[in-house]
């Protein structure tokens, strides 16, 4: 296994909102852990905004860790994604940034949606309770799987004509 694969498989980043009331952790490529403190009691709309903030923070932390791994592997500092070159790259970037990935918890209580891994939207049904964290992490993991599935499909369309 290469260095980048190794780093991404063992990646672990944290973020929290509401002064630590809602904490999130991304482990490896697809595992998410979310905990909601017992004292967190807000109305649904407030919870949704906090989860969206948590998602943004977690993804930003994850990309920092990703670029750190890439920097280590390639021996030079990388802090952002390079600009696309060529028509296939531009087509990929445009289509990828337009991907809408979705995920929901098994009980349907939490639904997460993201456009181009930038614009997050979270919908929560019901009030905050201790089970909300596991519902949120189920939704987040489903979203990650959906994003990966769509990116793979996009790559297949653009670069693998033999697999269309």
């Amino acid at each position: 296994m290469g260095l980048i694969a190794d780093r991404l498989d063992s990646l672990r980043v944290h973020a929290s909102v509401m002064d630590g009331g809602i904490c999130g952790e991304l482990q490896g490529r697809t595992t998410v852990r979310i905990t909601v403190a017992p004292w967190v009691v807000v109305n649904d709309r407030g919870l949704e905004r906090h989860f969206e903030s948590l998602a943004r923070l977690l993804w930003a932390a994850r990309m920092r860790a990703y670029f750190a791994a890439v920097s280590e592997a390639f021996g030079e500092r990388v802090t952002r994604e390079p600009v696309p070159v060529g028509s296939r790259d531009v087509a990929y970037r445009t289509a990828r940034d337009g991907i809408v990935a979705r995920g929901s918890s098994r009980d349907g209580r939490v639904v997460v949606e993201v456009l181009g891994m930038r614009q997050w939207r979270v919908a929560v049904r019901g009030a905050a309770d201790t089970a909300l964290g596991s519902a949120a992490q189920e939704a987040a993991e489903a979203l990650i799987r959906d994003q990966i599935r769509q990116v793979r499909g996009l790559k297949r369309t653009i670069w693998h004509p033999v697999c269309r």
Binding site: M1, I4, A5, L8, V70, F74, P82, D89, Y92, I148
Partner: peptide, 18 residues
């Protein structure tokens, strides 16, 4: 660097190497 770059394609982010 080719091996590392292939590794990185499992992600959805474009990569540049020198």
């Amino acid at each position: 660097k080719t091996l590392d770059a292939i590794d990185a394609t499992a992600d959805c982010t474009r990569n540049e190497w020198t």
